[in-house]
Design a protein around this nucleic acid. Structure first.
Length: 480
RNA sequence: GCGGGAGUAGCUCAGUGGUAGAGCAUCAGCCUUCCAAGCUGAGGGUCGCGGGUUCGAGUCCCGUCUCCCGCUCCA
């Protein structure tokens, strides 16, 4: 199975889907670039999502908020605290702990043993340490002074306490100081929350309504791995749905099903998808479920559906002093709306689609590699190929390609044997290959080859566009 | 961040101290009338990067970066 992921990584590089960032300088960990075909696939996925969310719902509108935001946003959201963990490693067991957690557990142990006084003193010291300027150093000193052993190995062989800040920091203005510090957003959601009134008022929306957004987010992950699954710079497709308090579970259930269905419509087998219920809820949520996909490396999250309560809007109301309430003209009620969020990882969706689409099959003793992507998502929609490079076939083929280009991403190729050209197109998921042969020169008919079945039909060249458009609409995945 | 493994042509890899290679891919030409055919030729590598040992390093040593696996973390 791991083998499969490697093949996909290799294909991505070879055919121009995904490259490691800054590769000529040795790469930058967990950052990737989309190549010529990758960017087509990515744009098609974004387009599908936007259509499904914004165009197909009269009460959902779009937004494109800035990556840089006022630093108070992240204090209000809880990211400044939650994304700052003091961590320490046990050199013996190779396990990592949160230093403050380690001390707290130790205090609990003292209490259990009846050493109340010592526990209380230590507790005071812990609080002081957490508020110290050099918090990691202060925590480290406690662990050293108390000789707190590792809970697993019992060893006393610690590394230094290190601060892991998952938010990227940069500075506004030419001088870098504490006052000019801003963050690259670690999630896109806050851009929607802070614009709640702007969007509602300018769009004359009434609850329930949603705001959708596609954009980059940044997390300085400690461990980032598995190709584009966990990246430091990644893209989210998310929608925040604002509802009347008390109706959130209804919306939550509805969006769960809608979002699962979206992935299935994109060609993902239903048995490769599942819901994974969060057992431990985040501080802001009253319900949370992940849509997981069976990746080669195991079941992993692709999209989260979270019932975020009124946490975010309430916090922004507290921190900004601005009212985040909604006045319901029907019921004459005033309340802070509850929020149901659907948040999909765009890059993870791409990886899922590649994993799902990648297929190898034996054809007359040769291995055929084919990306069975949904035609609507395929980077190239149609290839136009002269059977041989003579008798005016190339000219005829180029004329057809020119006609198709304004409507479909069209690829023209006349080099080498026809079989090789077909297989190249299979490998990048091109659903249709139109071939100009000697019969075309006589009666104007061409063959259209289907990527999945390798079957050909013969139609008139003037009908190619209509035929392909119809097939794009009707396409059903092999498993359906 | 810790431990283990790896990094040589676009891809997959061989090369165990003595002139950098193969297959596939790419490009050009020839040939080719439907599924990676053939022939001829070409381009492409300071062997991840930096230092050291040596007369001589892809090969040995140190450092560093990146990737993979495990641990850890994960809104």
């Amino acid at each position: 199975m791991q083998d499969r992921l490697e093949k996909i990584v290799s294909l991505s590089k070879r055919r121009g889907f995904i490259f490691p960032s800054s590769e000529i300088y040795g790469g930058l960990a967990a950052v990737y670039d989309y190549g010529p075909l990758g960017v087509e696939l990515k744009r098609n996925v974004q387009q599908r999502w936007w259509e499904a969310m914004v165009y197909e719902h009269e009460n959902i509108v779009g937004l494109d908020a800035a990556i840089l935001m006022h630093p108070m946003v992240w204090k209000a959201s809880g990211h400044v605290d939650a994304f700052n963990d003091p961590l320490i490693d046990d050199r013996q067991s190779k396990r990592r702990y949160r230093a403050d957690q380690l001390i707290e557990d130790y205090i609990e142990k003292l209490r259990a043993k009846g050493e109340t006084q010592r526990a209380e003193a230590l507790h005071q010291r812990l609080i002081a340490a957490l508020n110290a300027d050099d918090m990691p150093r202060a925590l480290y000193q406690i662990i050293m002074d108390e000789r707190i052993p590792s809970p697993d190995s019992g060893a006393f062989d610690w590394t230094e306490v290190r601060q892991f800040n998952l938010m990227f920091v940069t500075h506004v203005g030419p001088v870098a100081s504490e006052e000019t510090k801003v963050y690259l957003r670690p999630e896109t959601a806050q851009g929607i929350f802070v614009n709640f009134h702007n969007v509602k008022d300018s769009s004359r929306l009434q609850i329930p309504f949603g705001i959708a957004q596609i954009g980059k987010a940044f997390r300085n992950e400690i461990v980032a791995r598995q190709f584009i699954f966990r990246m430091r710079e990644f893209e989210q497709m998310e929608m925040q749905y604002f509802v009347r308090p008390g109706t959130q579970m209804e919306a939550f259930e509805a969006w769960k099903e809608k979002r699962l269905q979206w992935h299935i419509e994109n060609g993902i087998r239903p048995d490769h998808l599942r819901f994974h219920v969060h057992e431990k809820l985040a501080h802001y949520a009253d319900a949370a479920v992940d849509i997981q996909y069976r990746f080669p490396m195991g079941w992993q999250e692709v999209e989260g559906i979270h019932s975020r309560t009124d946490y975010d809007l309430r916090r922004h109301q507290e921190f900004s002093g601005k009212k985040m309430e909604y006045f319901d003209p029907q019921t004459q009620e005033r309340y802070i709306p509850y929020v149901v969020e659907t948040s999909a990882g765009l890059d993870r969706t791409i990886l899922m689609l590649l994993c799902e689409a990648y297929d190898e099959e034996e054809v007359e003793g040769e291995t055929r590699v084919v990306l069975r992507l949904h035609p609507r998502l395929a980077p190239i929609k149609v290839a136009v190929l002269p059977l041989v490079r003579k008798d005016g076939m190339p000219e005829r083929a180029q004329a057809l390609a020119r006609e198709l280009r304004p409507f479909l991403n069209t690829f023209y190729d006349e080099k080498g044997a026809i079989g090789r050209r077909y297989r190249r197109m299979d490998e990048v998921g091109t659903p249709f290959c139109v071939t100009i042969d000697s019969q075309t020169l006589e009666d104007g008919t061409v063959t259209v080859r289907d990527r999945d079945t390798m079957q050909q039909v013969r139609i008139h060249e003037t009908q190619v566009l209509a035929y392909i458009k119809e097939r794009l609409q009707q396409w059903k995945p092999v498993h359906a």
